[in-house]
């Protein structure tokens, strides 16, 4: 039992009951058994992880080589006291404050074509949540070719403050779902803001939950 600030509010039984009881118990069990990897813990990945932990996804792999920077606070889940800390550890701290009874595995490495198969083996769902277009393409290519069981949920196009409603989830290949507007790039005069990045992250998190709950495994 984790010491609660509010008289045992965070013991496991209490937190289990906090999952929306209107859902049948099979749903909770299926989410609790799921294993999801998140590649990149920036605006997409940190927010995806928060949503999946709140939804009770039982095992999350958190992968990023970077540390929390003050420029991340505009859209990523981190807090000022965490600036300078490795992102996987900082995010795990936040997730433990939402649900300490889920499993969080952290990997502080730069993902390369050579290490993709090692890092992501055993995960049926991989969220692509990198920032650079080249890294996104590399991860999707490597996971789809080297991990024949894995489904990828990728984020592509969420810069700026344009219309929210052009951010969509589409299945583009048999094992690939892509969320985003597909076109708004970062660059001169175009950056990232919390609302559209979080909308895209929510599209990815919801697709992950659909994949878990619609799977026969």
């Amino acid at each position: 039992m984790i010491q609660g600030i509010n008289g045992g509010v965070s013991d496991k039984e209490t937190l289990d009951k906090a999952f929306d009881a209107r859902f049948p118990s099979e749903i909770k069990d299926k989410l609790n058994k799921a294993r999801v990897a998140i590649a990149g813990l920036g605006g997409l990945g940190s927010n995806i992880a928060m949503m999946l932990a709140r939804s009770g996804v039982g095992h999350l792999l958190l992968v990023d080589f970077d540390v929390v920077d003050v420029t991340n606070l505009n859209r990523q889940a981190y807090l000022i006291p965490q600036v300078g800390r490795p992102k996987p550890q900082a995010l795990k701290e936040l997730l433990c404050q939402i649900n300490p009874y889920l499993e969080y595995e952290t990997v502080s490495l730069k993902v390369t074509p050579e290490n993709v198969a090692d890092i992501f083996a055993g995960y049926g769902i991989v969220c692509e949540a990198f920032d650079a277009a080249e890294q996104k393409a590399m991860l999707v290519q490597e996971v789809l070719t080297k991990l024949p069981e894995a489904v990828v949920v990728s984020g592509n196009g969420m810069a700026g403050y344009g219309d929210s409603n052009i951010i969509q989830t589409r299945q583009l290949m048999r094992r690939l779902y892509v969320c985003g507007d597909g076109s708004t790039d970062i660059g001169d005069g175009m950056g990232l803001m919390s609302p559209r990045v979080t909308i895209c992250a929510a599209h990815q998190a919801n697709k992950v939950i659909q994949l878990i709950l619609n799977s026969d495994k």
């Binding site: 920036g42 990198f130 920032d131 277009a133 996104k136 592509n156 290949m173 076109s183 970062i186």
Partner: peptide, 30 residues
């Protein structure tokens, strides 16, 4: 045709009639 093509193989491939090609272009941001 539903297979992901490694980049180094692209130069060796001649497009055939009735091929189905999907090109997914990524943009930055995350």
């Amino acid at each position: 045709n539903l297979d992901i093509i490694p980049k180094e193989e692209l130069e060796n491939i001649t497009i055939k009639d009735e091929d189905v090609i999907e090109v997914l272009r990524f943009v930055g941001g995350g």
